[in-house]
Nucleic acid binder design. Sequence first.
RNA 1: GCCACCAUAGCUCAGAUGGUAGAGCAACUGAUUUGUAAUCAGUCGGUCGCGGGUUCGACUCCUGCUGGUGGCUCCA
Length: 639
Amino acid sequence: MNKKIKIQFPDGDQREYSKGITPGEIVNQISKGLAKNTIVSKFNDELHDLNRPLEDDGKLLFIGYDDAEGLETYWHSTSHIMAHAIKELFPDAKFGFGPAIENGFYYDIELDKAITPDDLDSIENKMQEIIDRDNIFIRKILNKDEALKLFDEKNEKYKVEHISDLNNRLSIYKEGEFVDLCSGPHVPSTNYIKYFKLLNIAGAYWKGDESRPMLQRIYGISFPKKKQLDDFLEKLEEAKKRDHRKLGKELDLFTINDEIGAGLILWHPKGALMRKIIEDFWRDAHLKRDYELVFTPHIARLNLWDKSGHLDFFAENMFAPLDMENVKYQIKPMNCPFHLAIYKSQTRSYKDLPIRWAELGTVYRYERSGVLHGLMRVRGFTQDDAHVFCRQDQLQQEILNCLDITTFVLHSFGFDKYEVYLSTRPEKFVGTEENWDKATTALKNALEEFNLDYEIDPGEGVFYGPKIDIKIKDVLERSWQCSTIQVDFNEPERFNITFRGQDGFDHQPIMIHRALMGSLERFFGVLIEHYGGAFPIWLSPLQVVVLPITDNQHEYAKEIELQLKKADIRVKIDDRNEKIGYKIREAELQKIPYMLVIGDAEVNNKKVAVRKRREGDQGAFDLTTFIERISSEIENKSE
RNA sequence: GCCACCAUAGCUCAGAUGGUAGAGCAACUGAUUUGUAAUCAGUCGGUCGCGGGUUCGACUCCUGCUGGUGGCUCCA
């Protein structure tokens, strides 16, 4: 009757227990300390509730709060408690999905009444009540019919629909009076949830499908320790402070204007100056790497876009055509057809390849109004675009070159952490499987030769070719899609571009599209957030501000300004009739890298009193020493 | 595009239950000549996003647009 099971632990230790013992009981026997930090277990590599009995021999591992899977369980249980609270407050609520996500959890709810921020408070209060009840999470297995019956009785139509898609053996969890369909696992009881907060309310389509009903989604977060919650909320605050839309206004970099149009950016002088610096750097980097620059128009005849295929697969992202003298023109959403036209302007030899053409090409795309977001998602933007035309035997080297220039440029802007994805052939594709395989192998080899860690996104390539996407991680560990390197089998075919081979026959070159920063607008937005507006000195629109203390130092201040200008340093004098503290405060808020405070002492000693942004007074220096110092900082692109 | 919320001076925001608006900062003028994150005083500044409607009367209520925010969907 009282059967024994053999449990093996990660340290190799093996013990016997009565069948039906729970991982929770085991961990309590092993060590109170370990038990205290354990939230869930893993039995034979599957997550397993602490109070779910063990029926067989196997390997057992305890998972703590600091483990990603532990936190996931924690969040998932919190989302159940939230649903329970909502059900108690709004008995008509019907539930969709309620998973743990990267940072916290959500639950999708159908409810006639719109949930307001005030409701979140009462839901939180109710959640605390449920937590205080310390209900145990009880797992139960049902077959499909039982589950359908149960949730049908509860009028949970979304659960019923979901059950229909599932296997026959289903688990449900009960906690107090609240029952939910769930594969688990959960924390042992509701009281395990200590600190939580509901963050925001949003709409979300059932099963992410636009054609299905829209549910209300509540996002939340929870942690076992108060400090963790506080840190998390602080990080959200920090992100808010760095918001490029806020900083863009405060630093007078750019605006978006109602009358101009949504998603269209006005670059103010300071932003435009930064853009010029970025562009100059970019052009320079390309010329040094044997790219050539081209310029192309903003519109072209509509036929071009028919030929390129964009009307077939990109039409919904294009602005409507213009009609002039019975000819239709299209504002360009892409630059590639123009580069192809340049390619075709003469016969190309195998000796000409590779050809590398780069353009800061401004494109316009119709994005649905709801997706627009500051500089990150706009309707008019400038791609740092380039197209490489090469032979098959050159492909891998060209990809390698692309990776090299990409990482060089990203690194120069202070981005050292990337997430790299290789997207392979999707179900619908053009070109031959053989070419796809060759190109994918070339991309893969290049990534490996370049020593970049990457993940494969199977089937996520665009229909015209495989691609490498590089997401950069900013200082807050958020990732942004900027760079992309894409092989294209479509357009060379459609435009029938060729080169004359050594064998005297015409061959089709391979075309690579690539963008490093992606769009200047988005990249600028990422830069603003990455640096929180405190740009490294080489990018700062204003590098030095001279702050005379009284009118008496104006002459000397002008002399300093002149010397700095001679050294190509961007400098201004703040000669307003204000106290020095006021001028400093303003310069700090404008995040100007260096302030030179000039009083009588500096005039008399021929010095400058250097104040560094955020760091404060650095003491007095000779002007030449100061110029040398910051010139080298500018040269080295250091912060 | 969809769901929810929001739109008051250049900026940040206040303005129960309908009676044509107020602060701080900025700007301007003056005083002050100041030593490392806000000197003082005065002045100017708003058809309350735009268009309809209800009402004797609308910033306030209803409605349609436009734009924004948080998400969803989409994202070459």
